[in-house]
Write a protein that binds this DNA or RNA. Structure first.
Length: 390
RNA sequence: GGGGGGAUGUCCGAGUGGCUAAAGGAACGCGGCUGUAAACCGCGUGGCACUGCCUACGCAGGUUCGAAUCCUGCUCCCCCCA
């Protein structure tokens, strides 16, 4: 075992949770040949967010060390739905939607990965198998083994349903490893069971078992739950610089060390005040996905709006119709911001609506059109529209 | 195949004939304080033609002056036995 293998292994595992079996990665690296590094993603949502980039960045590190990254777009497994971390059965995913997502997924993944050094497969290539092959696959594990997994065990003992299809999911993922002959599989910690079970599946097919490397899960911008699209606490890699910056500024301080460790190359200096650390993070990530210039402009605009309380530079116009002189505010707000009229009324009653910076109150539900024309109407802290009479 | 239990708002979860647009919690929104942080305080969270009306407690019917609550059928889920 050479020093360089040990060094590389230490580097690659520095912010990982598990690298199993113990020492295996170093042994693999010491062989001196490029490793086949697997990552499987199910295109269940069209967007990649910063949470996904944690593992993608790790993959990128492998790439930069000369290893072969194999990205598997789980078009077939997406139709089953990964039960990991789930407490209930997923609704069946729609194949057409999955195909669409797969394309955008791939494109977005290459904002982190080097396209030329990445092998991409759809697992439909091999999972669309005859029943006979499924028999073989289904024999590679046992119900007891599958039920050992934490989320299944919980659901089972809580008397919640587990479908047979879900039980099959880890086997399908494991077969991916057989199909591409992976040396190592990456995943977030919630994938630990799946990636470990793949070792069993590989053995049962007589191929060498992969090692595994799991990464921590990035909390969402609420700082508590994992970042996920369905929880609405995510920052998408395709978000505009303003969205990225603004969302990241809402992340609680407590999550900063984790964000730094998982998303940036340099660790968080403890001496940096939390607010500055967060600004630097927001700035760095906006720059990563949109360039230094856009990031600088975004930061400047953010300060203008939130520190100097100026209006945002760009405010979308909203054309309103006024067929008399008076305009009914709840209706206007409902149309402009996509809230219900009832909600608009409530917000008016809570001083949550401002016209050119001044709070409106619910005593005046109708305002003259001329007062509105050209004015900026603001809902809460962050939603603005410039009104134009149609 | 037999027996038992269950389905309530974004989620969890109370509620077994009127006082229930439905307790409580979580989540979220608005306001205050602030750093679009945390903590804390206040208000709010079905819709609308809004001092009122409409819709809502798995689905469809029924009983009743009145049903989330009672009855019938159906759908789905869980457990035990086989």
């Amino acid at each position: 075992m050479t020093d360089s293998a040990g060094e590389a292994a230490r580097f690659l595992t520095r912010n990982a949770v598990d690298a199993l079996p113990e020492g295996e990665l170093e042994r693999q690296l010491a062989k001196g040949r490029p490793l086949r590094v697997k990552l499987g993603v199910d295109p269940t949502t069209p967007d990649i967010h910063l949470g996904h980039t944690v593992v993608l960045r790790k993959l990128r590190e492998f790439q930069e060390l000369g290893h072969q990254v194999v990205l598997i777009i789980g078009d077939y497994t997406a139709r089953v739905g990964d039960p990991s971390g789930r407490s209930s059965i997923r609704p069946e995913a729609n194949p057409a939607e999955i195909d669409g997502n797969a394309l955008t997924y791939e494109a977005q993944a290459f904002r982190v990965l080097d396209r030329d050094a990445t092998e991409v497969h759809r697992n439909g290539e091999w999972l669309d198998m005859p029943m006979e092959d499924l028999f073989r696959l289904a024999r590679s594990s046992t119900v007891a083994q599958l039920l050992e997994r934490d989320d299944f065990a919980k659901r089972y003992s809580a008397g919640e349903p587990i479908s047979v299809l879900e039980l099959l999911y880890p086997l399908m993922q494991g077969y991916d490893s057989v199909a591409i002959r992976s040396d190592i599989e990456l995943g977030a910690t919630d994938q630990k069971f799946n990636v470990l079970l793949a070792r069993e599946v590989q053995r049962s097919y007589g191929v060498e078992a992969q090692s595994i490397l799991t990464m921590p899960i990035l909390p969402g911008i609420d700082g508590v739950q994992k970042m996920s699209k369905s929880l609405g606490n995510y920052v998408g890699v395709n978000d505009s610089p303003e969205e990225m910056y603004g969302k990241l500024m809402r992340v609680p301080d407590a999550a900063m060390p984790t964000y730094y460790e998982l998303l940036l190359d340099d660790p968080l200096e403890p001496s940096v005040p939390p607010r500055d650390a967060k600004r630097a993070l927001a700035r760095a990530l906006a720059a990563r996905y949109h360039g230094e210039q856009a990031a600088a402009a975004t930061a400047e605009r953010f300060d203008a709006v939130h520190i100097r309380h100026e209006l945002p530079e760009q405010i979308e116009d909203f054309a309103f119709a006024a067929n008399g002189d008076a305009v009914h505010l709840p209706a206007l707000l409902a149309d402009a911001f996509g809230v219900s009229r009832s909600e608009a009324r409530r917000l008016l009653g809570q001083a949550g609506v401002k016209l050119d910076g001044e709070a409106l109150d619910e005593s005046a539900l109708d305002l003259p059109a001329e007062r509105l024309d050209g004015a900026v109407i603001q809902l809460g802290k962050r939603r603005h529209k410039r009104l134009r009479r149609r």
